[in-house]
Design a protein around this nucleic acid. Sequence first.
DNA 1: GGCATATTGACAAGCAGCATGTCATAATGA
DNA 2: TCATTATGACATGCTGCTTGTCAATATGCC
Lengths: 148, 148
Amino acid sequence: MSNSPLYHLIWSSRPLMQRAEALVEQRLTGTGLTVRMRAVLEILARDGDCPVPELARRLEIQRQYVQVMVNETIAAGYAEKRDNPRHKASPLICLTDRGQKLIADVLAGEARVVARMSEALAADDIETAVAVVDRLLGLMDDEIEKRP
Amino acid sequence: MSNSPLYHLIWSSRPLMQRAEALVEQRLTGTGLTVRMRAVLEILARDGDCPVPELARRLEIQRQYVQVMVNETIAAGYAEKRDNPRHKASPLICLTDRGQKLIADVLAGEARVVARMSEALAADDIETAVAVVDRLLGLMDDEIEKRP
DNA sequence: GGCATATTGACAAGCAGCATGTCATAATGA
DNA sequence: TCATTATGACATGCTGCTTGTCAATATGCC
């Protein structure tokens, strides 16, 4: 039913996501980055250099499309290819200095916004919410697997 | 930062939504309904008959596209047009008996799944999570409005 | 009643964000 | 050494939506 709190929580995910994406996009205006490039740079900054197929796995997107995203990012000068000791035909994608600085700035700015919003909420309530949502994700996976 | 609980919560919204949509879609197989039709029928069942532009406002989608969704739903026999006393050129979209029964079944089935998952979680933790997310939506709106 | 303005349904076109298919060229593992 | 797999590149298609346009009303205001 629509008056179940859990039902409400589940369908809050859509507006939540829309606002998150809107915020990210808004903060990107003027930086020269697109949302797609930001996604690539974020992974590289967080997890370090990696080849395209590995990026695709982390982003859970088809490697063919990630390739396009990466090519754009390289063309914009925020990333570059380097020899991959583990696979000669699949170069590592690495941040350039410009890319490094830019993504650090962007992520820091986002972190400031999140920190500001965190202050308006009780820390342990946030923890509870995270725990509920994480459990919920597992429960939904179970329901989905019930009839494949 | 990526280790902030609130950051984690915000980006849980995407997988949450994906799973919610996957579940809805899965439960629709064999009913003759598409996800789009379900969306239309859900509003009609919840809020009562209304004309297309009003549906569009509630769904927050362009009316031109909602019109397509509604036409499909009518063609499938789950809804029909009736005279609108408030606006002669814009008929009310109403559930047919078939549509009424079907959407009630679908929503009841979904409610059963949600109820099952609710049992695995503490009721007051769910309430806390809902409260956090609702507050968060407001906070994000504020952040977005800061520079339009 | 008469007229400017807004609303509606219908249709067409376009676009972003993917998925899918294919292929040549390596690279890898047995 | 040879079958298998991985990779980059390119083309094509799809879905879900937006945008634009238009004629036909309908409505609000005088």
